[in-house]
C-alpha cells in the first residue's frame, strides 16, 4: 500500500526527513510515533503527495485518504457537504449514505455547519470525509490531539472496525500508548530518522521506548 524507502525531505537548508523507510501493507494497521518536530507531519505530507521528497523512493498503491492534523474541515460548509467533497475525485460516488451507516454519530449533525462543531465531532467528520473516497489505506495525522479520552475511545473503536473490514491504516500519534494499543506494528521517529521499529508489543516492552515516549519509569 505504502512503501517509502530512504526518504529525504528538506525545507530550504533544514532537513526534516533524513533517510526514512516506512511501509504499510494491505490491511495492516501501523503506528508512527514520535515527539513534536520529529518529522511525522512531514512524512504524512510526503506520503500524500503534498510535499516532494528530495531523495528516496515512494510507492503507493490503492486509494489513499488523509485525515489531516487539526481536522482541516471546510468550516463554512455543512457536515454533509464536507463529506461529499471527500469523494471529489470520484464524481459517481458522492452519495453520503454509507458514511452515516458507518458513523451514526454524524446523522444528527448532517445539516450543521462544520466550523461550529466540537473538536470530537469535527474529528468524526474528518474521518467520515476521508472514508468517503472508499480508501484502501487511511493516513490519520494526530487523531487524539486535544480530544477527551471518551471521544478518542469512540474514534478508536470505529478505526478498529474499519481495520477489521480490511482497511489499512497509518496512524500518526503523539499518544504512543494509544498507538501501540491500536496497531500491530510501529515506527518511532526522532529528529527525522526512524530510531526504532517493530511489533507494538515488542516496542512497548522496550525500556528505551517506554521511557522516551510512554512516560513510564523503567
Amino acid at each position: 500500500m505504502i512503501e517509502a524507502r530512504d526518504l529525504v525531505v528538506r525545507y530550504g537548508a533544514a532537513t526534516a526527513l533524513d533517510g526514512v523507510s516506512v511501509s504499510v501493507r494491505a490491511g495492516e494497521m501501523v503506528a508512527l510515533i514520535g515527539a513534536n518536530g520529529a518529522g511525522k507531519t512531514t512524512l504524512v505530507n510526503t506520503v500524500c503527495g503534498i510535499l516532494r521528497p528530495a531523495a528516496g523512493e515512494l510507492r503507493t498503491s490503492g486509494r489513499l485518504a488523509l485525515v489531516p492534523e487539526g481536522r482541516h474541515l471546510f468550516g463554512p460548509l455543512t457536515v454533509d457537504d464536507n463529506l461529499r467533497l471527500g469523494a471529489w475525485r470520484d464524481r459517481k460516488n458522492r452519495d453520503t449514505g454509507h458514511i452515516y451507516q458507518l458513523l451514526p454519530e454524524l446523522v444528527p449533525l448532517r445539516k450543521q455547519v462544520a466550523g461550529r462543531l466540537s473538536g470530537g465531532q469535527q474529528q468524526m467528520v474528518a474521518l467520515g470525509r476521508a472514508l468517503m473516497g472508499r480508501p484502501d489505506v487511511l493516513v490519520i495525522d494526530e487523531m487524539s490531539l486535544g480530544l477527551a479520552p471518551r471521544v478518542v475511545e469512540n474514534l478508536a473503536g470505529h478505526l478498529r472496525q474499519r481495520h477489521a473490514e480490511g482497511l489499512a491504516v497509518l496512524l500518526i500519534e503523539q499518544n504512543a500508548r494509544l498507538a501501540l494499543d491500536l496497531c500491530s506494528r510501529a515506527y518511532v521517529l526522532e529528529a527525522g530518522r526512524v530510531v526504532a521499529e517493530g511489533p507494538s508489543a515488542e516496542l512497548a516492552g522496550s525500556t528505551e521506548v517506554a521511557t522516551a515516549y510512554l512516560g513510564l519509569e523503567s
Binding site: C48, I50, L66, P68, H72, L73, F74, G75, P76, L77, D81, R84, L85, G86, W88, R89, R94, R129, G133
Partner: peptide, 22 residues
C-alpha cells in the same frame, strides 16, 4: 452544486482542499 462547494472549500482551507484532491 459540488463545484460551488469545492470553490467554497478552496476558499476556506486550501490545504484540506488539496488533501481531498481538489
Amino acid at each position: 452544486t459540488d463545484l460551488g462547494r469545492a470553490l467554497t472549500a478552496t476558499a476556506a482551507d486550501p490545504y484540506a482542499a488539496r488533501a481531498v484532491g481538489i
